[in-house]
Design a protein around this nucleic acid. Sequence first.
DNA 1: ACGGGGCTTTATATCGTCGC
DNA 2: GCGACGATATAAAGCCCCGT
Length: 205
Amino acid sequence: MANERITSLQVAKGAGVSQSAVSRVFTPGASASKTTREKVLRAANELGYRPNILARAMITGKSRIIGLVVAYLENQFYPLAVERLSVALQAKGYHVLVFMASQEIEGVEDVMKEILDYQVDGIVLASVSMSSDLATRCNDHGVPVVLFNRDQDDEHMCSVTTDNYQGSREIAAHFAQIGHTRIGYIAGFEGATTQRDRELGFRDA
DNA sequence: ACGGGGCTTTATATCGTCGC
DNA sequence: GCGACGATATAAAGCCCCGT
């Protein structure tokens, strides 16, 4: 069969060692002699074997996957932010799985339930909100949630956002203070509360 | 049709054994 | 004593089989 999956057991048979020896060779820091290591790597290479991440996650309880939830990608800074996030996480052995969600809370709830099914190790929410009930559930599952470009007061969350209203208010106030009278404001997605807060802060100032 | 028990998948953790 | 190794238990969830 062309698409037959190669398992550690087949590699073990090919290398003439036990299946646990194969596991040790692919586990950094585990004990395996030079000759065993060479035999296993040769057999693995010939058979085209790679360790099954999903099976590993089943045992360790760690998927090494971070779920990234975004509502839109029109924001010109997002591609860069996603790239930086992915590179930084990959350097630590994690990978990013992107989920699209609508701006509505219900849409986010559905996506979040799907994400938890994937046994992710953490969740990053970009420009979307979640209910405190769902935040509590994530917390109970031991899944940390980071909010990006979003305000949230919930005690279970770790937020890296700034106050949209106050931030835009300070910028507008600064322009006014230095003598500008015709100030342009480039708005984001109209339905987003982030956008509403920013515009309100700008107009108030 | 339905429920329950057992099997299957696959990599890893743990423990016991062996040889130097 | 210690490194290297093998055997076994384990995890979640779908599937199959059997009995009711």
